[in-house]
Design a protein around this nucleic acid. Structure first.
Lengths: 230, 230
DNA sequence: AAGGGTTTGTGAAACAAGTCGCTAGCAGCT
DNA sequence: AGCTGCTAGCGACTTGTTTCACAAACCCTT
């Protein structure tokens, strides 16, 4: 079947790609991917924004709007072809790539991260580990030899590392982030309890369970659910 | 020193406490606490919103507005007394309490969480561990005896557990969250890669490093920083 | 005691995000 | 083929969040 596109339409599509997408929207895309894969596994080839919204607890409108930032993936009256939408989203997020990761800090947390089995199936490969403690250097952890910090820049270049994971104590975190960014790495997953200052082209995601807990305790005021008041 | 408050003023304060604070604001409070503690350690007793904003990479206006949801903690022309502001924020967030936590799932991740030394100094005490796998039950991990799931409700009541941490595989996560909430727990830190559905009075914070990574790779398009183009 | 230099707290303005309502288009049935 | 029910895409609108701008208040110096 042959299709005709108006110049208006094409122009619109180009504009979309150039127009920068709100970060909140980008942050939701991986959730869509995950949900869609699940739906596919459950045997559905087609899904409506309505249904997807139900499983993700979002409004259908939000899902449609989010997707519309990137293109037109659905069919009116029918919904989205799950298989197609997943591949499109994976493409947008570049999830088909293999991403090479260096972990800095091989204390308890760093070791847990290196051995975490959830990264690899998603294409995230931890292929190098560093530590500033010379007693750790040379040790083998999960098949990796811990390297000294001053090999960071060379290894990043040689092995094509694009992502850094920071798992050092708070005191060293800022320095480590600085060193990582100066190697040209533009994506950092930071487990240290600090908000590192980075140049604008670098993305940082902070993971700090203590902050998460501390923001929940605000809501834990005596609602006294559970026991019968009598 | 004796103070006089206008009824207007008092009414305003009461309104503030009743008025619900945006969740984004509450989520920033722990960051303020952390930064302020650091500032105190560095020897400053007084801090301006300007300076605090610099260390946290926020605008001074945002900090002032956030704090104004809860009261008036500063002095014009001077700034905030750090010690006082910290204690006020800790009070608001209820950080002086000891919070009892149960971890569900004692696989690799669950064990790491139980042994994580960062919770205890902040008043978060992991005092119980559960697993549905009978081979795990009875084992000792970090001083805790792993209990079977059907002891959950009783233990929560007996030991006054207010927070649950979920560290089970994705497939079991929804069930586990359901069981935890049905014990009356209203705060859950979820490490499983799912968005559990909970009643509105329950707060959930999801921690999923894969989602964080996947949202960063969107931005890792060929900016080709690093090598000199010539 | 008065003046200058700061800085808070806060309504108003600007901006961003999310929702609504409608149109156009598709599938399946009669 | 036409009708019915459904659903994406999208502009308009609503809601929520951040920033601005300025009066009131405070310290310190003179």
């Amino acid at each position: 079947m042959r299709r005709v596109y108006s110049s208006d339409f094409l122009c619109n599509e180009v504009t979309k790609l150039l127009m920068d997408v709100p970060e909140v929207v980008v942050n939701r895309l991986p959730q869509y991917v995950r949900a869609l894969r699940q739906i596919l596994e459950d045997g559905s080839e087609i899904v409506s924004s309505q249904l997807l919204g139900q499983t993700l607890q979002m409004t259908p409108a939000q899902i449609r709007k989010d997707l519309s930032y990137f293109g037109r993936f659905g069919k009116q009256g029918r919904g989205y072809n799950v298989r197609y939408l997943v591949t499109e989203l994976q493409d947008i997020l570049q999830l088909d790539h293999e991403w090479n990761i260096a972990v800095v800090g091989v204390g308890r947390l760093g070791r847990a991260i290196i051995s975490y089995p959830g990264f690899s199936p998603e294409g995230f490969k931890v292929i190098a580990a560093f530590d500033s403690d010379s007693r750790q250097v040379g040790q083998s952890i999960g098949g990796l030899i811990v390297q000294p910090m001053d090999e960071l820049a060379d290894t990043v270049r040689q092995k094509g590392i694009q992502i850094g994971i920071v798992a050092v104590p708070a005191a060293q975190a800022s320095d480590v982030v600085e060193r990582i960014t100066s190697c040209g790495i533009r994506a950092i997953l930071n487990y240290a309890p600090v908000n590192p200052l980075v140049p604008p082209e670098v993305k940082v995601r902070n993971i700090d369970p203590v902050l998460s807990l501390q923001s929940m305790t605000y809501y834990l005021r005596s609602g006294d659910t559970g026991s019968t008041s009598n």
